[in-house]
């Protein structure tokens, strides 16, 4: 249990997830109110990650349901284990005929089979899928419904029962209520607008690209080896890249990838050639790379000019850089 919003922040940070107060507030409310959270935002800002760390921080089991086109009840909730049912009927042939023995008419025989059919439609033959698992679990769990926007609208409607009452209805077994209220998190990339009914039942959390300070903090947490100044340059550059009109805007995961690649290359400075060489780590489209390259060379020159004007401290830095390069070669 999180006791307060500040506790959420510190507990998540222990798990290596840096978040701001806004995220923490919603997580806290979700726990207190027992409401599902719909997390939206651009790709790669840590929506799924949030669910994972909350599960670890609360020491709950994480049950994940990955949504995709055509996902249906059988895959999400439960399925009758057809082969097993068939196998049992085959094996129990003798018993079946024994029950049927002495039946006077077809109707009576059918009646006898019908009396026994609950054997074959019992929990023994149910394969629980993630939703069912989350509801029937004895321990409190965290249910992550990932990329819910990829699912069909019908599936969304079907989710409503689970989200509002934490119960599911299986025609043959009746309604199953959750033993422990799970924390439910849904993530969406906004590929499709979710229905109002679903949204109404959820708390809404919009995770956007982080602010510069927050991103530096994240970088520090995830890639601790990186030089402070380099991290700062990197993040500020990243922010100006996000301003550009790109097909796929790089997100936090790309920042981390970039930082790691720069580390691997032993780069100590973000100069133009270094940026050009490593740009394909963060941008995934040819057109984007070309566009960014143009803008970035302008930006870097501007920055260099600023640095030169800033005074002796800044002048020292470039003087250092060639030396290190010399060691490398």
């Amino acid at each position: 249990m999180f006791e307060s919003v500040d506790r959420v922040i510190s507990d998540l940070e222990k798990q290596g997830y840096v978040c701001d107060k806004r995220i923490a507030t919603v997580v806290f409310l979700a726990q207190q109110l027992g409401k599902p959270v719909l997390i939206e935002g651009p790709a790669g800002v840590g929506k799924t990650e949030l669910a994972k760390v909350v599960a670890t921080a609360l020491d709950r089991e994480l049950i994940r349901l990955q949504c995709y086109e055509g996902l249906d009840e059988a895959k999400a909730l439960y399925e009758w284990e057809y082969s097993k049912q068939l196998l049992y009927t085959q094996l129990l042939k003798d018993q079946v005929s024994a029950t049927m023995e002495g039946a006077q008419s077809l109707t009576e025989a059918a009646q006898r089979v019908a009396d026994e059919d609950s054997v074959f439609f019992s929990e023994r033959f149910v394969v629980p899928r993630p939703l069912m698992q989350a509801i029937t679990s004895d321990n409190p769990v965290l249910l992550l419904i990932d990329e819910v926007d990829k699912s069909d609208p019908e599936f969304e409607a079907f989710l409503l029962e689970v989200l509002s009452d934490f119960q599911v209805t299986v025609p043959e077994l009746g309604t199953i209520k959750a033993k422990q209220t799970p924390i439910v998190m849904l993530t969406s990339n906004d590929a499709r607008e979710m229905s109002d009914a679903l949204k109404r039942r959820c708390l809404h959390l919009w995770i956007d690209y982080p602010s510069q300070e927050l991103e530096i903090k994240i970088l520090d947490q995830k890639v601790p080896e990186i030089d402070k100044r380099l991290a700062q340059d990197l993040v500020s550059l990243m922010h100006s890249i996000r301003e550009l009109d790109l097909k796929k805007v790089p997100s936090i995961s790309e920042t981390l990838d970039w930082a790691r690649s720069l580390l691997a290359l032993n780069a100590s400075d973000l100069d133009e050639s270094m940026v050009t060489d490593t740009l394909n780590v963060i941008l995934k489209y040819e057109g984007d790379i070309n566009k960014a390259q143009k803008e970035l060379s302008k930006l870097l020159q501007q920055k260099a000019a600023e640095a030169a004007a800033a005074g002796p401290q800044a002048v020292e830095a470039p003087a250092e850089a060639p030396k290190k390069k010399g060691v490398l070669h």
């Binding site: 109404r200 708390l203 809404h204």
Partner: peptide
């Protein structure tokens, strides 16, 4: 929901207050 959320939080903190209202009432990016 917004009221329920406000019950859980102290409303002295402006940011918390704002986040509570937003997460319960505004569902579109």
């Amino acid at each position: 929901n917004a009221f329920e959320a406000l019950d859980e939080l102290s409303i002295d903190d402006r940011e918390l207050f704002k986040d509570a209202l937003r997460s319960t009432m505004v569902k579109r990016g």
